[in-house]
Simulated assay, not measured.
Amino acid sequence: MGPDDAFWEDGEWVSWDEIHQQIQYKEWRAKWPNADLSLVPVFEDLISVAEDYFLATGRHLQVYGDIGELYAAITYGIRLHKNFAQGSDGRLGNDHIEVKTIAPMNTKDQTSVKLSGHFNKLLVVNISEEFEISSRMIDRASLPKTSGNILKIRWDDLA
């Protein structure tokens, strides 16, 4: 490393890549104050790959559930459980969170949740046809009552 790709500061060379990364982390921290910043580039890359694949092929990758869980971890600070953990997808403080994702190809803008799971909050992540992401969290006690074990939730009903 030398003068072409770095500068001398306080007795050491500092690369422009390091400066760029520090600026990027400050922007991410401002946007996602609760995030594990190591997950942000993975999330951004995954949503970009899903969109690029759709634009190139007209087909969807089966990654939207993972994108929703990464979004939950980054946006809310939810600590995700190990893969295939039963009952909920993660924790936020003392709350067990179930994350459900509405994928861009879901024309009904709805998802289903198993009520047998051990969760006390439901986070629904909506990925629009334009690959824009939004979310809504609801207490389990506020979910509509149903006689079955599966509850269908429409995005508009969560407003």
Rank of each mutant, 00 (worst) to 15 (best):
Q21E: 07
H81Q: 08
E12L: 11
T146W: 11
H60W: 15
L80N: 09
D139R: 05
L37D: 07
K26L: 11
S135D: 07
D139V: 02
R91P: 00
I127C: 01
I23Q: 06
G2D: 15
N106F: 11
N120T: 08
H60L: 02
N106K: 11
L61I: 10
K114W: 00
K82F: 12
K82A: 13
R136G: 00
L158S: 07
L46V: 09
S38N: 05
L151P: 07
R29H: 09
R91D: 00
F7Q: 03
G68I: 13
L123G: 01
Q21W: 07
D10N: 13
Q62T: 08
Y25L: 04
I153S: 07
E130H: 09
G93T: 03
H96R: 15
G87K: 00
V42E: 08
K31S: 05
V113S: 12
P41D: 03
E69A: 04
A72F: 14
D52E: 14
H81M: 13
T146P: 05
G58H: 10
E132I: 01
L123A: 04
H118Y: 13
G68R: 04
L122M: 10
A103W: 08
S116E: 14
M105F: 15
D36R: 08
Y64V: 15
L123M: 12
G65R: 08
W32Q: 01
L46C: 02
V125G: 01
D4T: 11
P41W: 08
D157F: 15
L80T: 10
K152C: 10
P144M: 15
N149D: 14
T146F: 12
W16I: 06
L158T: 12
I78C: 06
K145H: 12
L70R: 05
G68Y: 10
K121R: 15
D36S: 10
Y53L: 00
A6H: 04
Q62P: 06
V14I: 04
L61Q: 14
F131T: 01
D4A: 09
G58I: 07
S147G: 09
L80K: 08
H20A: 12
F54G: 00
N94C: 02
N34Y: 03
E69M: 04
I47Q: 03
S15G: 03
G77C: 04
K100L: 06
W28G: 06
S15K: 04
V63A: 09
D52C: 13
D17M: 03
T146L: 11
L70E: 13
G2Y: 12
D17Y: 01
L143F: 14
R154S: 09
